[in-house]
Write a protein that binds this DNA or RNA. Sequence first.
DNA 1: TCAGGGCCTGACACTGACGTCAGAGGCACG
DNA 2: CGTGCCTCTGACGTCAGTGTCAGGCCCTGA
Lengths: 124, 124
Amino acid sequence: MRIGELADRSGASIRSLRYYEEQGLLASERSASGQRHYAESAVERVLFLRRLYAAGLTSSTIAQLLPCAYAPSTTTSDHAFDVMVEERAKLDAHIAELLHTRDAIDGFIAANRAHRGELISAQQ
Amino acid sequence: MRIGELADRSGASIRSLRYYEEQGLLASERSASGQRHYAESAVERVLFLRRLYAAGLTSSTIAQLLPCAYAPSTTTSDHAFDVMVEERAKLDAHIAELLHTRDAIDGFIAANRAHRGELISAQQ
DNA sequence: TCAGGGCCTGACACTGACGTCAGAGGCACG
DNA sequence: CGTGCCTCTGACGTCAGTGTCAGGCCCTGA
């Protein structure tokens, strides 16, 4: 498929797809005229890339761990494996932080609901 | 306390503290000469601000929901309350995404460990 | 009273993942 | 064969939070 279709199906913009390629995260076959062509599997790959971006990973970090994700058979992926384990740990810490933040917000929401409840009671 | 101490105790840079003030997120008393002075409570407030930033909230979003967090008694905080509830929902969705991503990474890690196990077995 | 560190404002630099525009060629369809 | 949509490269713009620098005032201790 061409880049427009991949964009539609993955939810990424055409600009983003070209950027991912520039960063070495997404390969493409080129037609004689230079147009990019992608296999079906590219859709899922882009979705995974977007997931990693959403998790706060940077392009270069993703580039480092990708070999681990897509070529577990290579012996050269020691670094990729280490990076992936490290990022998993960071992600875990980040999730814990977010849970804590969510609890804090829940506290404020509860306090407000209580106050609103009082207001409503007072009005009645 | 002055800005330098607040920076030390909150972990935020002096630059950031001034920026938070500029965005209406952090008030300060000014001395006659114009220097900022903060109460003890500012430390905790800055920590909360940093937590919200880390959760991906933007300055203006934080500014919108802060009244709800620090003045639940005002009747004017309807909008703040709505924003806070909305952000809590987004945060929840984000956490779910991250958990999903973590699972995906765990899958890759497991696949790699398995392969490494095979390698080690083959070497023995 | 001088030194040195903290603080002030204002402004420009930077980073990263894009948006967007310009100018040009590719490709299918009527 | 031309029209219209898709794609190409290259380059500059954007946004948000922050770093950093300049030029100058504040304030405490020797």
